[in-house]
Design a protein around this nucleic acid. Structure first.
Lengths: 335, 335
DNA sequence: ATGAAAGCGCTAACAA
DNA sequence: TTGTTAGCGCTTTCAT
């Protein structure tokens, strides 16, 4: 690896002149510039980002901390953010905390040791240990997808309460009076918000919400299969005419498990998911869902980081959109 | 941000002593160590990785370049590799090239400018411009998932030829004589290998392979819907009794499109995918597939990078495993 | 328009 | 056991 010194030597200039050519700032005679450029070419010189980052106190690096990387939504975040970072000539360093606050803190510290220019994070849970760390890193953190209670960071989230509310209202409008719910983990605020919105919608419509038919899932396939198993065993399961799973993955898992029991969607029971991911569209039947604008959310997060409009934290909430599909096509008549 | 100087000053030692305490190498009197540790604690000191990286010519960083981040398999790679990196106290910097060789080269150069300790890459295509770059970076690159023709890098791949062969053999064993195929992009060697293996299996079993029923997809849902549309239009579609899609996503897309045409799987037509991802398991019917050990592949790639056994490139090929499921359950009798 | 020199924060060879 | 010092590669004053 050749350094700027090598370039300068070959071009017969000082390192400062070479640096000026590379950074395209200070004045350089056209002829000198040519010599430097040729030297760069010949040596296949690439500036060392650690050195320039050390000087500039900027690693030209964005950190991204997510719970996992496998799920579609997180993959979408990674891909969108990575693309935008590239446009800005920024690197993207990532880590998964698996909802473990210790790992989360470790990643946070490691990233800051690298002079990151900003951090986008979907925090571990309400037990996140990031509190004091976030205070110190003013304006360089944007929360995505999940919020931290009374953090003073900017954040980009979906209005999860409204999402739950919308789906609740929708199912009631289809005539459902007994609705089961497979929630996300209770320690994550987005799950709680979705559930509260959902309950509020039912309450407003005077539909009784049976706590016996709430199952706390973990956003994965398996947990929704468990949920269905537990529901089916209950004596008054026959009254249930609709199920809402708080993400599409669990909805697909529920569909499969219902199928095993010979229960047909939407004829015997209606089913809805959430996220608006492809699996809900390509499922048979297609599954009613609430779409989240993952790409826009990612873009907004980067924008808030790189072009902050003020010193005050900005809280951006995106609007959920209901997408009715085949899985809720049948209208249930009240008996 | 406090530096090691601040620590040394507060502890009343020199920076080298402080450094020795931090690095846990050189000898330090117990009492001095205590003072330094307390200073570190008080200042909440975190070493600057750009500075140490610059010195050590090692960014404690692994680079990961993938075509995309959204697909399940790539998400799996990211998650596995990220976990292992964390164990080694390494950062993980990632980028997507979207099968564009220019982006790929740009990422490559950027990563190397960061003194990465190793690169794991699933290259863009046969047109990858990485040739000379790879020569220069001896032993620090491992290809994953995709191979580059006569590169002398280590690589971790699936035996894609065998995967195609296995599925071909299996479908023939189920009595199929006319089989359609939805391939991956032809510019990617894994697609070609799968297709060749598949054809070879049919040939060995004396089953005629009709080139009219090959559709070049792109590994996404939509392309398989197009494939089905084009197949259905052909006059002799009625003879087709099985379809192989070269990944699970396309298989699910094909299932959906067949369903639209009122064609039932497996009763009217058998269907198989590839990758062994959850969507093929949770699909209704579950889809016969070939599993890839994504986690093991990722682990192997990091291992080859961090603990190379020799200077020679090592080529690791994992064995595909056939997973028969409902989508191929019906045995077709030759007429 | 150009160069000399200092310094970002860290480590390691050498001296004491 | 501890400290001094040089230098990783870069940028940026400050002279010239």
């Amino acid at each position: 690896m050749s350094s700027i010194k090598d370039v300068a030597r070959l071009a017969g200039t000082s390192t400062s002149t070479a640096s000026r050519v590379i950074a395209k700032n200070g004045p350089v005679k056209a002829e000198t510039r040519e010599r430097v450029l040729k030297a760069i070419e010949m040596l296949d010189y690439k500036p060392n980002l650690l050195a320039s980052g050390l000087r500039a106190k900027s690693g030209r690096l964005i950190g991204l901390i997510l719970p996992e990387s496998i799920h579609f939504d997180f993959g979408f975040f990674i891909q969108s953010i990575s693309g935008i970072c590239m446009q800005y000539d920024m690197g993207l360093i990532i880590g998964n905390h698996h909802n473990n606050p210790e790992l989360e803190s470790k990643l946070f510290d490691d990233f800051y040791s690298r002079n990151i220019d900003g951090l986008i994070i979907s925090p571990a849970s309400d037990a996140s240990l990031l509190g004091k760390r976030l205070k110190n890193s003013l304006g360089k953190v944007v929360l995505i997808d999940r919020e931290i209670a009374n953090s003073n960071c900017s954040s980009v989230t979906l209005d999860n309460y409204k999402a739950g509310y919308l789906i609740g209202q929708f199912l009631v409008s289809k005539g459902h009076k007994k609705i089961a719910c497979i929630t996300g983990p209770n320690h994550i605020s987005i799950s709680r918000d979705r559930t509260i919105g959902f309950k509020d919608a039912l309450k407003e419509c005077n539909v009784y919400f049976d706590e016996n038919f709430v199952f706390e899932g973990n956003f994965n396939y398996d947990s929704s299969a468990e949920a269905i198993d537990s529901f089916v065993k209950k004596p008054n399961f026959k009254d249930i005419t609709a199920i809402w799973a708080e993400n599409d993955v669990m909805a697909v898992g529920a569909l499969k498990e219902l199928h095993k029991f010979g229960i047909s969607v939407p004829n015997d029971i209606a089913l809805a998911g959430m996220d608006g991911t492809d699996i809900s569209l390509f499922s048979i039947p297609s599954i009613t869902t609430i779409s989240q604008p993952f790409g826009e959310m990612a873009a907004k997060a980067v924008e808030l980081l790189l072009h902050p409009v003020s010193n005050e934290p900005v809280k951006v909430k995106f609007e959920p959109v209901l997408i009715p599909r085949e899985s809720t096509d049948k209208v249930f008549q009240s008996i």
